[in-house]
Write a protein that binds this DNA or RNA. Structure first.
Lengths: 106, 106
DNA sequence: CCATCATGCAACCAGATGGTTGCATGTGAC
DNA sequence: GTCACATGCAACCATCTGGTTGCATGATGG
């Protein structure tokens, strides 16, 4: 009986364009250092670091220290949980609204 | 050629437990007034109103004035867009990571 | 060793957020 | 008309957020 975890923090973590862009860069499945991830953004390394910490706290990403750099990589679990949540609710809405449309209620 | 809209604002709107709860109440497919939606929350009507406005701006919900009350109901489009986005990225991650695991890269 | 590179930490800042209270306004019911 | 009810609007507040700068620290590589 999987305790259904609250999806709000993951959604909050995904609710920022910079973080979505970071995730898309991490989507190659490899791990990347902070300076590496900072390249191409018009942002300071520290700003990117803060975003990465947000993603880390939400469980979307994991950080491992290797030598003098900390490398970040994707941890897919929490995002697929969020995906499943959205799939459930939107399926329920489709069903409910479809049923209502039949009955011509509002 | 559907212009792919930025999913971040929808995720941000979903990134709050109160708003998720509001959405779950609206999930019955009917429209509800603000005072009606406020019942059961330990919040002021105005706080709930603000949350509803956030959901409205993100396109998750629509508001129609009827008589002296404004009734809110679900607008499923943006949420299914967000759902599709998550489905795409998590499918891509699964595939990428699976391929990497075969090659034993890191 | 020493310079360099990647990072961490702390202070600071402006603006957004989540909440409150108080009051004004519009509509419905008698 | 008038009273009550549902809402809107504005001010205010504390905290969070997204960003900066400056400096300290810890590995790396000659």
């Amino acid at each position: 009986m999987r305790r259904r975890t609250n999806p709000a923090p993951v959604f909050a973590a995904l609710g920022d364009t910079t973080r979505l862009e970071l995730l898309s860069r991490l989507g190659d499945g490899h791990s990347h250092s902070i300076t590496e991830l900072t390249e191409g953004f018009d942002l300071t390394r520290q700003a990117v670091t803060k975003h990465l910490r947000v993603l880390d706290k939400a469980g979307v990403v994991k950080c491992t220290r290797v030598g003098r750099e900390s490398r970040f990589s994707i941890r897919p679990g929490s995002v697929s949980a969020a995906r499943d949540y959205l799939a459930r609710v939107s399926a329920q809405w489709d069903e409910t609204i479809g049923r209502l449309r039949e009955v011509l209620d509002e």
